[in-house]
């Protein structure tokens, strides 16, 4: 057990799985970097933010494959390799680039098993960075997990901490279905205790990071951290919150969400993705349908505005849901009282 960053946790998960299973390979743009350069330096980048650094040295060029900037071909190749005996982990760099290869994910990998009558296995992991907070603007900052969650056949993982990232990534690599694994790039330097041994965290099992009586907060990815912070602040004022980290948006642990909402009667959902048809709307619909009688207040969603992610820091800070906004939403539902009939 030692302190590891989100980046190190992911690197270690990849390394341990590549050691365990020779069929696990890595591919993507600059996952090593440096091939064809004039300096002769190999593993020049180890991923654009250094997440895969050092893997080339240990596993060689046959298993750590740099690709051309050519998402349709290599994401499709990853799907094809997965269907024919390998267990590829393909890195899409920024999830926004899915625009260049959505067919290979949505129409190919996700559909094989169903449309081939259950005969295909596609053990593919696609890793990609998501999230605002990096001044990377509209084409490098989106939180697109709802897009993938919408597609049957895909599993979607949104880890909220280094411990979660390692266990969920190893689970993803060992899973026989296509998995989209989304890493919030603002979190790469977050640190916490992470076991040195390999371990797995099952999909579809939410984690309760706080347990309280008054309000349930469902949050995804980096928003879990914000929700915890808000819950700790609110606890000082006597408002106790349950914070649910669903870990995976597909499958979604609807049982835990409904149980917690039944206990607290109040629900706030924090989702960094664009507000229309996102996970917040999905969870809100679930609770409205299945736990309506338990609700003591309207459901509140804390989401960005329905705009592209802006560039300027001041605007970006306004865009991303904040601890303060979460706190305000919780206070609003906690103090909500049904109006008496006149």
């Amino acid at each position: 057990m030692s302190k590891k960053s989100f980046r190190q946790a992911i690197n270690e998960a990849l390394r341990q799985e590549m050691r365990r299973d020779p069929r696990v390979i890595l591919m993507g743009e600059d996952v090593a970097g440096g091939r064809g350069g004039t300096s002769g330096v190999k593993d020049a980048w180890g991923g654009v933010l250094g997440v895969t650094k050092g893997l080339l040295t240990e596993f060689g060029e046959d298993r750590v494959l740099d690709t051309p900037i050519s998402e349709a071909s290599y994401i499709g190749a990853a799907a094809g390799a997965a269907a024919t005996g390998l267990r590829p982990v393909a890195e899409l760099m920024f999830v926004d680039f899915v625009g260049c290869c959505l067919d290979q994910i949505m129409n190919q990998a996700a559909k094989f098993r169903y449309m081939f009558g259950g005969k295909a296995r596609t053990p593919l992991v696609i890793r990609a960075m998501y999230g605002a907070g990096f001044n990377a603007a509209a084409q490098h900052s989106q939180a697109l997990y709802p897009l993938f969650t919408h597609i049957p056949g895909l599993k979607v993982v949104v880890p909220s901490s280094p411990y979660e990232a390692k266990g969920l990534l190893i689970e993803a690599i060992r899973d026989d279905d296509p998995v989209i694994f989304l890493e919030n790039k603002v979190m790469y330097d977050d640190e916490e205790d992470v076991p040195d041994d390999p371990y797995t965290i099952p999909f579809g099992e939410a984690n309760l990071t706080r347990e309280g009586d008054d309000v349930t907060i469902v949050a995804f990815g980096r928003m879990v951290k914000f929700a915890n912070e808000a819950a700790d602040r609110l606890a000082k004022d006597g408002i106790s919150c349950t914070v649910i980290d669903p870990r995976t948006t597909s499958p979604l642990d609807t049982g835990t969400i409904l149980d917690c909402v039944t206990d607290t009667g109040r629900l706030v959902i924090v989702d960094e993705s664009s507000p229309r048809c996102n996970l917040a709307t999905d969870v809100a619909a679930l609770v409205a349908e299945e736990a309506f009688d338990a609700l003591k207040a309207p459901i509140r969603r804390v989401c960005p505005p329905h705009t592209p992610v802006p560039f300027a820091t001041v605007l970006e800070n306004l865009y991303v849901p904040s601890v303060e906004k979460i706190e305000a939403a919780v206070r609003a539902v906690a103090s909500y009282r049904v109006k008496e009939e006149a």
Partner: peptide, 16 residues
């Protein structure tokens, strides 16, 4: 405590 149970769950997740 929550922490005690969580630690055991984490232990049990380790390979092997």
């Amino acid at each position: 405590t929550r922490a005690m149970v969580e630690n055991i769950i984490r232990f049990k997740r380790l390979d092997g």
